[in-house]
Simulated assay, not measured.
Amino acid sequence: MAKVSVSKSKGLQCFAVNCRHYNNSYWREQGITFHKFPDENKFPDTYADWVRKCRREKDPSKHARLCSCHFEAKWFDRTGQTVRLREGAVPDWGKFNLPKHLQPKTVKPRTTATSKRAAESAAQPLPDALPSTETHTSYVEHEHAYAGSALMWKRKFFQLSEKHEDMAREYSNALRREKRAKEICRAFVEELYEKNGINTDKAVFEEILE
């Protein structure tokens, strides 16, 4: 039986802007794999980095995938039957087909005599936490990655607001339970006094139940 050809554009398209790879058997046969986005709650910085580099005006859905063409070879684990991305994998800017207006901006160094003297006198090595092979541009990119997207911080704000509301609700419920418990105890003490079943000064109990 002849093999049925699959349309190159069938299936879900890679989420990166201008990428024409689709998650189907045709592209997988070309050696291209498709990978879901990191968990936004567990890895917010990595997730924000993926979204930022895709240059889309919308957030990825739970079905969105980024194809392997946007990652360096070092990020792939090919030891199993399924090609996987290693934890912490981030796409590489150079592997995106971005239009000029969407390309990351690099800061051009100043070339005045004053700026050169200032740079020479104030030159400082990059922090030890960064690989020594990183350029100044990648260092700036690394620092800005922590800022994330405005949308990510907006989500975090709403998540914290919801958590605060939940805690306030739990606190309010606890106060109501405490009040109810005191009312029950107070009624029980009143009943004991009426039946002469207790000799302790009533004021003692009132102080405790205050």
Rank of each mutant, 00 (worst) to 15 (best):
S115T: 06
S115D: 08
S115Y: 12
K116Y: 03
K116S: 04
K116F: 07
R117F: 11
R117P: 00
R117C: 12
A119I: 01
A119W: 02
A119S: 07
A119V: 00
A119M: 03
A119Q: 03
E120M: 11
E120L: 12
E120K: 13
E120H: 10
S121D: 11
S121N: 12
A122V: 06
A123E: 13
A123G: 05
Q124L: 11
Q124M: 13
P125N: 14
P125R: 15
L126E: 01
L126Y: 06
L126K: 09
L126H: 03
L126D: 00
P127M: 05
P127Y: 07
P127K: 07
D128L: 09
D128H: 06
D128R: 09
D128M: 06
D128Y: 08
D128Q: 09
A129T: 12
A129M: 09
A129K: 13
A129C: 08
L130Y: 15
P131M: 15
P131L: 15
P131Q: 15
P131H: 15
S132H: 14
S132D: 08
T133M: 05
T133G: 01
E134S: 02
T135N: 03
T135L: 05
T135H: 01
T135G: 06
T135K: 07
H136A: 04
T137S: 11
T137K: 12
T137F: 09
T137H: 11
S138W: 01
S138Q: 12
S138A: 06
S138H: 02
S138T: 13
S138C: 00
S138N: 04
Y139I: 06
Y139N: 00
Y139V: 10
Y139F: 06
V140E: 04
V140K: 08
V140F: 09
V140I: 11
E141N: 07
H142W: 15
H142P: 01
H142E: 07
H142D: 04
E143W: 09
E143A: 05
H144L: 15
A145W: 04
Y146W: 10
A147S: 08
A147I: 13
G148F: 03
G148R: 15
G148I: 01
G148K: 14
